[in-house]
Design a protein around this nucleic acid. Structure first.
Length: 168
DNA sequence: CCCTGATTCGC
DNA sequence: GCGAATCAGG
């Protein structure tokens, strides 16, 4: 799946998460397919720059900072042939993930933590794998290849995300 | 070094 | 409109 462009739903999700106080990078990660810069850029374009005071104690008064115009950007001549991922076929994967996840709340999910959802999102037992991950998931879960829940995705479900965030 | 949002500007 | 690059900070 490759989300691109700001569809109504994505914009809505973005707005909600932003107003919920989540950081741009967090939103970008959860939205997927976009960088935090994209998120911030969109936020500004939407006109909701000053969010409802979230986890930001003191935002710098943003004193006049005359930006010294950056030098010429990259020459944009980058053909760079897309290289195939070349998935390593045989590799020692971590032991099959079992038991409850290591992380209970999504807010604690770091950049290098497996975000594989475990259990029912409505249950208090719900958790995330939390093991060391290079990307979204740890080696074991990434190897599984199958998306959790076949349809339902915790890290993509705005309702679940909001609910979990609200539990903090 | 990690992160935060803000801004500019080529595309 | 979009978002990478870059900024000023914490």
């Amino acid at each position: 799946m490759s989300e691109s462009g700001w569809s109504e739903t994505r914009v809505t999700t973005l707005s909600q998460l932003w107003q919920d106080g989540l950081s741009a990078s967090q939103i970008a990660k959860q939205l997927g397919g976009v960088t935090r810069n994209a998120v911030i850029g969109k936020v500004h374009r939407l006109g909701l720059s000053g969010r409802a005071a979230a986890s930001a104690p003191c935002r710098a008064p943003r004193t006049a900072t005359p930006r010294p115009k950056r030098t010429r950007r990259v020459a944009m001549a980058a053909p760079t042939v897309r290289k195939p991922p070349v998935r390593t076929p045989a590799q020692d994967y971590a032991p099959a993930p079992e038991g409850p996840g290591l992380i209970g709340d999504m807010a604690l999910l770091g950049a290098h933590v497996c975000k594989w959802p475990i259990g029912d999102p409505k249950s208090p037992d719900f958790s995330f794998c939390g093991r060391q991950a290079d990307g979204r998931y740890c080696a074991a879960h990434e190897q599984t290849g199958v998306r959790p829940g076949t349809a339902w995705r915790a890290d993509r479900d705005p309702i679940v995300r909001r609910a979990l965030a609200g539990l903090l």
